[in-house]
Amino acid sequence: MKLHSIKHQLNWLILKVTLYSFVISFGTFFAWVFYTTFRSGHPVGDEFAFDTADWVQLIISTLLTVLVSVLTAAGFVRKILFPLQSLTVSARQVADGDLSARAQQGEKPLAEMSALVDDFNQMAARLENASRDIRTWNAAIAHELRTPVTILRGRLQGLADGIFPPEQQLFVNLVKQTDGLSHLIDDLRTLSLAQSGHLRLSRSTIDVPQEMAAIAALMEADFKASQHSLVLDLHPAQLCCDAARLRQAMLALLENARRYAVSGVVVISCREQQQGVTISVEDEGPGISPEVAATIWDAFVRGDDSRSRQRGGSGLGLAVVRAIVLAHGGEVRCTPGTLHGTRFTLWLPDAA
Results as ranks from 00 to 15, higher is better:
M1F: 03
L3A: 12
H4I: 07
I6Y: 02
K16M: 09
V23P: 02
V23C: 04
F29Q: 00
F29S: 00
F38K: 08
F38E: 03
G41D: 08
V44I: 15
D51C: 07
D51L: 09
T52G: 11
T52V: 13
V56F: 02
Q57A: 06
Q57D: 03
I60V: 10
S61A: 15
L63N: 00
T65S: 07
T65M: 05
T65G: 12
V68T: 07
V70E: 07
F76L: 15
F76M: 11
K79T: 15
P83K: 00
L84V: 08
Q85E: 14
V89L: 13
A91D: 04
R92Q: 14
Q93E: 12
A95W: 02
L99F: 14
L99K: 07
A103V: 10
E107Y: 09
E107W: 13
P109L: 01
M113A: 11
M113S: 09
A115I: 01
V117L: 05
D119S: 04
D119G: 02
F120L: 06
N121Q: 00
Q122W: 04
Q122R: 15
Q122L: 10
M123H: 10
L127Y: 06
E128K: 08
I141N: 07
A142C: 02
H143V: 11
H143A: 15
R146I: 02
V149T: 14
V149W: 08
T150Q: 13
T150C: 05
I151N: 00
L152A: 12
R153Y: 05
G154H: 03
G154F: 09
L156D: 07
G158S: 12
D161N: 10
G162H: 12
I163M: 15
Q169S: 14
L170T: 02
F171L: 09
V172I: 11
L174G: 01
D179H: 04
L184M: 08
R189I: 05
T190D: 02
L191Y: 01
S192M: 07
S196D: 11
G197R: 10
S202I: 03
T205W: 02
T205Q: 13
P209G: 12
A213K: 08
A217W: 09
E220P: 01
E220A: 15
E220N: 14
A221F: 14
A221P: 01
F223K: 03
F223C: 06
H235Y: 11
H235W: 11
A243I: 01
R245M: 13
R247S: 05
Q248P: 00
M250T: 09
M250A: 09
L253E: 09
A257H: 06
A257K: 03
R259Q: 06
R259H: 01
V265G: 01
V266H: 14
C270S: 14
Q273D: 14
Q273N: 10
Q273V: 15
V277I: 08
V277E: 05
T278F: 06
V281L: 10
G285A: 06
I288Y: 10
S289F: 07
E291Y: 04
E291F: 07
E291S: 12
I296D: 04
R302A: 10
R302K: 10
G303Y: 11
S306G: 01
R307T: 06
S308M: 06
Q310I: 15
R311T: 04
V321A: 05
R322K: 12
A327D: 05
G330E: 13
E331C: 11
V332A: 08
V332C: 15
T335C: 12
P336N: 06
T338S: 12
G341S: 10
G341N: 05
G341L: 10
